[in-house]
Amino acid sequence: MQNKYNLEGPQGTKPRKRLSGTNIMLYGTLLVVAFYYLLPLYVMVTTSLKGMPEIRAGNIFDLPVDITFEPWVKAWSTACTGLNCDGLSRGFWNSVSILVPSVALSIAIASVNGYALANWKFKGSEVFFTILIFGAFIPYQVMLYPIVILLREVGLMGSLWGLVVVHTIFGMPILTLLFRNYFTSLPDELFKAARVDGAGFWGIYFQVMLPMSLPIFVVAMIIQVTGIWNDFLFGVIYTKPDIYPMTVQLNNIVNSVQGVKEYNVNMAATLLTGLVPLIIYFASGKLFVRGIAAGAVKG
């Protein structure tokens, strides 16, 4: 900058080196970190696009020479789990049919719970809520078997709806917390005004609260879709092989002991299974972060 006013000595912005030592360290470290976190994704993608001979000859970090989509096709439609050989497609559709009712039911129930806890406190409601939150920390293993018995009693054991109920139960603590905190943060006057206008429990919920809560429903959906899609434990315990969700199917394909290991097919299958949550993650961006922050910091 030219010296407009004939000032002497230091003036204006303090000169800083663009490539100062601190900056090199900072961005260098970030580069290494980003590299470490991206590496597995890179390896998955490249491996899934190579043929087996190329995998045996080269190393996992090489870019594919002859790109082939055959592993993807095979992983999707003909890979064997040990029981059947119709690939991941079966697991994918199983997961979808588990996902849709589970997400809908768990969010419907938890949002009403959260609303009741935020606006219609009754004697004991806080106690039940506290139990619910503490329940989130109980290892699932403690409750697995009694739930098997309960599901058997009502005839849902091994069925898709049994798994839906289980997902609804175990999604309840975090979702209820999420909705309760959100509804509590809405101005109380709004609720009071609606009551003065004569609206009741359901009237206020559907006409006042729901229209204002779209973002939090999206956050809840992100939490539930990724959570349920990624579930392995409940899927393997509460369903039968022909309705196993995708994660279980994937594990059975990759870790099946029969036959020659086809690493490219395995990686294609792994990527296929990870695709749904990844798409949700990259598409939702800040909302995903908001979801986990809501679950974590306030919890």
Partner: peptide
């Protein structure tokens, strides 16, 4: 840094 968190433990 956060994307692995979206993936399941199996993956």
């Amino acid at each position: 840094i956060l994307y692995p968190f979206a993936l399941s433990f199996v993956v």
